[in-house]
Design a protein around this nucleic acid. Structure first.
Lengths: 237, 237
DNA sequence: TTGATTTAACTGGTTGACCAATCTGGTTAA
DNA sequence: TTAACCAGATTGGTCAACCAGTTAAATCAA
């Protein structure tokens, strides 16, 4: 079960994305040139694929990406509509999507700090008893491994995920869900955080939980920031 | 080009998602029952599809969703690996993904506030001259329509998108990109923000820009919060 | 003329066969 | 003994044909 480190095949960015990008930019052209207007139905996949000179599958994947960003909405057996959010917004956002770069680790961590700080603030006021129960369960899972000196990166991040769940903000929760695995991967790859200062971290977690129990947002945030200060030292030394 | 409001077909949540959810939960079962371990290669799509009793396409879509959340990574012509982030994390995150609810508008706006406040803080210290140029261009586009009393929701949000771009944090930028179109859609649907207090908003935008020009994070955030106070009044009255 | 009803075309979704890149194991040449 | 190599099996990706639901025009009865 031990995996041998594969050669990094991702030095070259996913080449498949290339054709997708081209298709998206062509659709953008259609929009800015008024051949396609916000709210309109897209031409049928078959005809649009031919018009753009690509296969229907490639087109479908590009459309799927656009749908993910909410720029397009599919209605099964009926058609696909361009979101009615104006040419300016469509053009701008498509351009942005095409320029999206692979996230760097620093941005990832920085964003996590931002999201989680605010999630904890909200959690301290909104948490239900069920939330609390889950947070404590996650904390116990972490403690158990940490006390025995085992690597508990995953349990740690699961704990933090439960915190963001308790925020009662479904969007924050989703976003945390998106960025968390990448962070774990980096952590594991770089062997950060498997020191044995875990006992410290347990206390810090507990302090956060206590503040949430007491419904004290400011203290919760303060304790979280203490907690992250230590993590920061880990990551940037 | 004025849109007539279509009947809301989305009362019923996308039914296609159902089978995907089932597949994902079956894959989760494989993992928690140790038939599949973190870092392992998934069985080939064909055999896994048969094992789960679903079509290969359905399986592929489920895998694609897992890949989006970073729980799985595809290596073309080679295989698909489960991310090496531990059983606990995989199980927890898959459970979370299955429970993901459609985002409510309040969460959406709240998250936007959080992200953008921090984006602006960062932008004030990190912005390049190019960033500044784009922000000002977006602001002019907005002003032009707003002064003439036209609805400029899109231009407004494009302006804010440029702000988050200037943060230099690619992740924040991506996340803003994801939540922005939904916000625009809601705004347009609910006819918010097409009052003619636009002249006020122009000044507020300008105040934010000025603070960013002066590289003054605190003032930038303060001005943004003023700006959003007004927006909040719009949304919740 | 009008209204309901049929029907044919058109939609995104699904399917199973095919493709080219990759990996694997045994074989061969040094 | 070792390293290079080659063929066959396996992989995810692609494609063209097909499916089922939707839509709107055509049809026909009143």
């Amino acid at each position: 079960m031990r995996l041998k480190i594969e050669k990094e095949t991702e030095v070259v960015s996913n080449p498949k994305k290339g054709s997708e990008d081209i298709i998206i930019s062509k659709i953008r052209e259609l929009i800015v040139s008024k051949q396609l207007e916000p709210g309109d139905k897209l031409p049928a996949e078959r005809v649009l694929a031919e018009k753009l000179g690509v296969s229907r599958n490639q087109l479908r994947q590009a459309i799927q990406r656009l749908e993910f960003y909410g720029l397009v909405k599919k209605y099964p057996q009926s058609g696909t509509r361009v979101s009615n959010i104006g040419v300016t917004a469509l053009n701008g956002m498509m351009t942005d999507i095409l320029q999206l770069q692979e996230p760097d680790f620093k941005s990832l961590v920085e964003t996590r700090l931002i999201l989680e700080t605010n999630a904890v603030r909200l959690a301290a006021t909104r948490r239900s008893d069920e939330h609390l129960r889950q947070i404590q369960a996650a904390h116990e899972a972490y403690s158990e491994k940490a006390i025995n000196g085992l690597n508990a990166v995953e349990e740690d991040l699961m704990f933090h995920l439960k915190l963001s769940e308790a925020s009662g903000n479904s969007v924050i929760n989703s976003l945390m869900l998106v960025i968390t695995p990448e962070i774990i991967t980096h952590f594991v790859a770089n062997k950060v955080c498997d020191k044995d200062e875990n006992h410290l971290l347990i206390k810090e977690h507990q302090a956060i939980i206590d503040a949430i129990i007491d419904r004290d947002p400011d203290r919760a945030v303060a304790k979280l920031e203490e907690h992250f200060n230590d993590l920061y030292k880990f990551c940037y030394d």
